[in-house]
């Protein structure tokens, strides 16, 4: 298996890959920029599993940390509050100099 594409600390943009059917990436994080918190391992693709296919090869899964204020324009909590969500590699793109 190849090395994970992202490392902890990398800035990533969560994509909307325009896929119908069962996907695990909620609407509210799509197009948002966050930071990889950790690599969680590689797992069968749930979009394939949902159709009774094997979902292999396994896909890298990352925990991505997002700022609550980046998610919710009217967020009233502390400015450094975060949300972490696990995202498969094919829903991510590098976002080095990307404005959030």
């Amino acid at each position: 298996m190849s090395a994970p594409r992202f490392a902890p600390g990398d800035r990533v943009r969560i994509l909307d890959i325009g896929k119908p059917g069962h996907v695990r990436i909620p609407w509210y994080v799509r197009h948002k920029v966050g930071v990889v918190e950790r690599h969680c391992g590689a797992y069968p693709n749930p979009e394939e599993l949902s159709c009774a296919r094997p979902g292999l090869p396994a896909i890298d899964l990352y925990r991505v940390r997002l700022g609550q204020r980046d998610l919710w324009p009217d967020y009233a909590g502390a400015p450094d509050d975060t949300l972490e969500i696990e995202v498969y590699d094919h829903w991510l793109a590098p976002a080095q100099d990307d404005a959030p």
């Binding site: 325009g18 996907v23 609407w27 998610l71």
Partner: peptide, 12 residues
């Protein structure tokens, strides 16, 4: 094909 949002995707 474009964005898909299921009725179950209620976050926000």
């Amino acid at each position: 094909e474009g964005p898909f949002r299921g009725y179950h995707d209620i976050g926000g």
